[in-house]
Simulated scan of single mutants.
Amino acid sequence: MERLAVNLAGVTLKNPVMPASGTAAYGQTMAQQLDLSALGGLVIKSTTAEPREGNARPTTAPTTAGWLNAIGLKNPGITAVMQDRLPWLAQHYPDLPIVGSVAGSTMAEYVEVAKKMTTAPNVKLLEINISCPNVEKGGLAFGTDPQMVETLTRAIVDVVDKPVFMKLTPNVTDIVPIAAAAEAGGADGLTMINTLTGLGIDLKTRKPILAHGTGGLSGKAIHPLAVRMIHEVRQQTKLPIIGVGGVFTPADVLEFYLAGANAVEVGAATYGHPTACTDIIAGLPAEMDKYGIASLQQLIAEVQG
């Protein structure tokens, strides 16, 4: 459907809707619940150099207007992803654009994983998860230091031949300098926002409800924050933005577009409702008709100039 098609740094998606990183893993389970080929793209789980077991359970819990999660980057490692997960997607869904999510605890690990992942033919974009703790800098997230963001972005851009989108953490006082640093480092686009750090406490045990303690807050609660941050960053950059944070309806998608987004990712909405992505895609044309929107690319031109 042409009116839903969007262009992200030279990559054409037939519609703007993708599952957010981690919510679809590597597609195999989601494929049993919906037709992956109906998606605009598939963002895979954040992948590290070596396999990771992740955090102790419980790793997720419902909370006020959303979810807390502390999965801990559980993944099978880049070798298994390159040998098994990505080839499976290529075999069964050859036309599905894959967004490869890269994570790490050192700059060298990010560069290594990105360099390997970019060689997969079905990976069309890289999304760099810079909310990871930087072990070389005392555990602070890579994405909270503008200088580190610029340096890391440049290091990755220099070794890959696919567009690089930096996924920004909202856990900063001002997200605009972080976005500017990613652009200065040569990023082709931005994904925003990642989860906000939250904490839930069990009144009976008097202990945190997640084994890890704190967790990332996702869901409806963070949608207005994501809209605000996308809008702020859009005033300062022309880079394409993938909006993520509390997208549950076609109206939420259009609100992100009015803030300045070019595509969207759907995360918490898929919990308990696995067809959320395809339901949103199916509902978009009628929602666009309601507001006289001929096509998403035209809307982008109107909003972004």
Rank of each mutant, 00 (worst) to 15 (best):
N7Y: 05
L8E: 04
K14M: 10
P19C: 09
A20D: 13
S21I: 04
Y26M: 02
G27L: 10
T29A: 13
T29W: 10
T29F: 11
A31N: 05
Q32D: 14
L36N: 04
L36V: 08
G41W: 04
L42Q: 02
E50D: 08
P51Y: 13
P51L: 14
E53S: 10
G54E: 11
P58K: 10
T60P: 01
T60A: 02
L68I: 05
N69M: 09
P76I: 04
G77P: 01
D84Y: 11
L86Y: 15
L86P: 09
L86E: 14
Q91T: 09
D95I: 02
G100S: 04
E109T: 14
V111Y: 13
V111F: 14
A114V: 01
V123P: 00
E127R: 02
S131N: 07
S131V: 08
C132N: 13
P133R: 05
G138I: 09
D145P: 00
M148Y: 12
E150Y: 02
E150W: 03
T153A: 03
D158K: 00
V159W: 04
T169A: 05
T169W: 07
V172R: 00
D174I: 13
V176G: 06
V176D: 05
I178C: 10
A179K: 06
A180C: 04
A184E: 05
G186Y: 07
D188K: 09
L199N: 01
K204E: 15
T205L: 12
R206H: 11
P208F: 07
I209G: 03
L210A: 03
A211P: 12
G216L: 11
A221C: 07
A221I: 12
A221F: 14
H223M: 12
P224T: 11
A226L: 14
V227F: 05
T237K: 03
L239C: 02
I241V: 15
G246V: 09
F248D: 12
T249I: 06
A251I: 10
F256K: 12
F256V: 08
Y257L: 14
L258H: 12
A261C: 14
E265I: 09
G267R: 06
T270L: 11
T275R: 04
T275P: 01
A276E: 09
C277H: 07
A282K: 01
S295W: 06
L299P: 03
I300M: 11
A301Y: 08
A301S: 12
V303Q: 10
